[in-house]
Design a protein around this nucleic acid. Structure first.
Lengths: 138, 138
DNA sequence: AAATATCCCATGATATCCCATGATATCCCA
DNA sequence: TGGGATATCATGGGATATCATGGGATATTT
């Protein structure tokens, strides 16, 4: 399982590209899909992301799909409606779609924070606010 | 197993053609049948679809006994009556039959949503309603 | 013959690929 | 341990390929 640790601030260029930090890419290097799965963070205005390995695990745990026996319930996880599959280019960059950037208020710079099985992508300002708030509430 | 992730909105032209998103086609590229199996979604007014690989798996897991015993109390395989095999044209498009389009209220635009082993095809408006309802009911 | 489906090609927008650059980190050897 | 050589990394930009889309021409069906 890919593990992400550390904080890195990278630039978002005018094509919307950002380099995924090399240590994160190294964690993902064994996977067949070279890229990340991104989605709006569950709390706070960041983007969260993981590798295909974690996603495949979630899909495997998805309710057994058997159309032939049961036609009623699909308690499909609502997270699926927000997922984005972002491939690395030859230089380890991804393109952050503009809507995701807007939601996360990312413009110019993006801060990657590893949080174990996932990592987050923040606007540096928002991350600072979030951290200040965290510290105050402690 | 083909996996579908991400949301894509494409246009339905006046011939009823829609491009299946390239990432979805890539997931299906290894299969002998180049196209999708579509059927009315089990919940809500969308279309659901998958690749032939999942369909074959579901058929393999079908309860043998049901086939051999009587036809009376088995609503199991009723989905078979609704399955549609839709081939890609040379440019990766499918034709959505008009009755399926009507049932899903798709007209002009179609939103593809990957939900792991399957994907859904929505009228953008209906999807928005569905999502709002999901969010509100939480 | 009419309606429909299939095939083929054109087009603009966008993403991808490829290469160049400078900065930093790492390595290697005296 | 110092300090130059080398590799890695983030970044920028131009060239190329891919994708979604439209429409005409041909085939198929009834």
């Amino acid at each position: 399982m890919a593990v992400f640790i550390g904080t890195f601030e990278n630039k978002v260029d005018r094509k919307g590209r950002v380099s995924v930090p090399a240590p994160f890419r190294a964690s993902l290097s064994g996977l067949t899909f070279q890229g990340i799965i991104a989605f709006p963070a569950r709390n706070g205005g960041a983007i969260e992301a993981c590798g295909m390995d974690l996603m495949e695990q979630m899909i495997a745990e998805q309710d057994q799909i058997n159309l032939l026996s049961n036609h009623t319930g699909t308690p499909t996880a609502s997270i699926f409606y927000e997922l984005l599959q972002l491939s690395f280019d030859g230089d380890g960059r991804i393109i952050l779609p503009s809507d995701l950037r807007e939601r996360a208020a990312i413009d110019g710079q993006a801060t990657f924070v590893g949080i174990g099985k996932l990592f987050q992508i923040w606007s540096p300002e928002r991350l600072a606010e979030f951290r200040a708030q965290q510290a105050g509430g402690r």
